[in-house]
């Protein structure tokens, strides 16, 4: 490993925070900051400049979704991995739309956590079957005739197929074999489903801001 990955851990349960921090440090990551709530997370992020933020959604202060938005606005190259105990569906989906690229339940093993942090850092989305189901559901919702949105994002048939397989617990390797694709192609399809949803979310936010007259001329983003 050329240089240790810089990671920040945000969790309000000290026991959990310590456990995750120790696991990551043992695996050779550089834990540059920890935070117990949203305020600390947002305050410590700029100085610590982590590459990956391991974030619990259920935290006091600005919640996980808001923290995701704030840190990614500050540093778009950072990655957010959601580590959540209670699997609150709406929150997870909101965090992903706000830019988080990974989601892991807390009962995942240490190996899974370490692997997830590595993959998140590499820009590879980390999906649980549950998250894939949510994303799929969100696309379905957006494609319903009632949701009258001219630039709603749509999945290609292949993307839908891949996402359904992720949602039924198949690994990228299994999917690649079943669909006779390369591992990289499967990864790209999954990445695209997220990217389109996040882009749409940004467009929605901007349009909403313009409609509300909130679009201040602060230069190109």
């Amino acid at each position: 490993m050329s240089e240790a990955l810089r990671v920040m851990v945000v969790d309000d349960h000290p026991m959990w925070r310590d456990a995750v921090e120790r696991d990551l440090a043992d695996a050779g990551f550089d834990v540059v900051a920890v935070a117990a709530d949203g305020h600390q997370a947002v305050a410590r992020f700029p100085a610590a400049r982590p590459q990956v933020v391991v974030l619990d959604l259920q935290i006091p202060g600005p919640n996980g979704v808001e923290v995701t938005e704030t840190v990614l606005r500050h540093d778009p190259s950072a990655r957010v991995l959601i580590l959540s105990a209670s699997g609150e569906q709406e929150d997870v989906l909101a965090a992903v739309k706000a830019g988080a690229t990974g989601y892991l339940v807390k009962s995942a093993s240490r190996e899974q956590l370490i692997d997830a942090v590595r993959r998140t850092a590499a820009g590879d989305p980390v999906f649980t079957p549950g998250l894939a189901g949510l994303v799929l559901g969100e696309y379905r919702r957006l494609s319903e005739p009632a949701a009258d949105d001219p630039d709603r994002p749509q999945l290609t048939e292949r993307e839908t197929e891949v996402l359904r397989m992720v949602a039924t617990g198949m690994s990228y390797k299994q999917i690649a074999e079943r669909l006779v694709l390369s591992h990289r192609t499967v990864q790209n399809h999954v990445q695209n489903t997220l990217r389109k949803l996040q882009l749409h979310n940004r467009v929605e936010l901007t349009r909403w801001a313009i409609e509300q007259g909130l679009d201040e001329p602060d230069g190109p983003a």
Partner: peptide, 18 residues
């Protein structure tokens, strides 16, 4: 309360497996 209990249970589950 449940959230706290869930957190502890998942931690025990994870550490136990290790």
């Amino acid at each position: 309360v449940h959230d706290g209990v869930l957190q502890v249970l998942s931690l025990v589950q994870r550490r136990g497996a290790e």
